[in-house]
């Protein structure tokens, strides 16, 4: 059974998923951050595969991506680093990234490497739903990889239904019409969260974008199965001198 499904099977509320960029702040930090996230009590981790032109992300994640690329991070290096990580890490891990580097690596090669290392799912925001459905769905299933789609406040109800029917693992609800790292008033988004909750989707829902602290996390959790923190976490660790401590403290501040 996929670890994401296991997680939501056991614990449907207040799931904390934390995003970080692979190879950031330093080349060799990927596993350190992942271990510290698990030790601190994060329920899931989302590892960003850095891309030179991350359209859906704001400046914090773009800067971390630029730095990670300079540090030598690339998909093949990430899979090298992830080799054997399942000996220590049991929380679900998804990879997030843009479609071009995946296309260059080769979609099937990529999915095979995900399965071999123990990755559970993928978030590829610029892979169109139609193309996934007509070209790639059987491959994702063959290698046991869940593809997680995004919905936004502007997504129509019919399209949300369609997205829910194609998504596996969870649906990623973007909290507002924005790039990552924008502070928007969470209260304003409550109508949208309520709508999503009342639609009773087949997938669990995690809210992302604009979640940055305990308060925003809890607001999001009132209407969903949990939330994703990205930019705020990346910012918190960028100048850390003790990653273990910084990461764990960050997670505890949210979860306690």
């Amino acid at each position: 059974m996929n670890r994401i499904d296991q997680l939501f099977g056991n614990k449907p509320k207040e799931v904390l998923n934390i995003y970080f960029t692979a190879g950031f702040p330093h080349h060799g930090d990927t596993l350190t951050v992942l271990q510290a996230l698990q030790d601190g009590g994060a329920d899931m981790a989302e590892i960003g595969m850095p891309f030179s032109d991350p359209l859906a992300d704001g400046p914090v994640i773009q800067d971390s991506s630029t730095r990670a690329i300079k540090n030598g991070m690339r998909i093949s290096v990430l899979f090298e680093q992830l080799k054997g990580f399942r000996e220590k890490i049991h929380i679900p891990v998804v990879l997030m990234g843009y479609i071009n580097p995946v296309l260059q690596y080769g979609v099937e090669n990529f999915l095979r490497s995900c399965q071999e290392t123990g990755v559970d799912g993928l978030i590829l925001p610029d892979l169109p739903m139609d193309e996934y459905e007509t070209e790639y769905k059987p491959l994702f299933e063959k290698y046991g990889q869940h593809l997680i789609f995004l919905v936004t406040p502007e997504t129509s109800e019919a399209r949300i239904r369609k997205i829910d029917s194609l998504s596996r693992g969870f649906v990623y609800a973007v909290s507002s019409s924005s790039t990552t790292g924008k502070d928007k008033d969470m209260k304003l988004q409550e109508d949208y969260f309520r709508k999503l909750r009342d639609m009773k989707l087949q997938n669990p829902v995690l809210v992302g974008f604009g979640i940055r602290d305990k308060a925003t996390f809890q607001t999001a959790c009132q209407y969903s199965n949990g939330a994703i923190i990205g930019s705020a976490f990346v910012k918190a660790i960028e100048n850390s001198t003790n990653l273990q401590e910084t990461v764990q403290a960050f997670v505890r501040n949210i979860k306690q």
Binding site: L55, A56, I99, P125, D126, L127, P128, E131, F149, L150, V151, T152, E154, T155, S156, R159, I163, V174, S177, S178, T179
Partner: peptide
């Protein structure tokens, strides 16, 4: 060609 856009741009 095509439209490789994140969902935020779809509408």
């Amino acid at each position: 060609g095509g439209a490789y856009i994140p969902e935020m741009l779809y509408p």
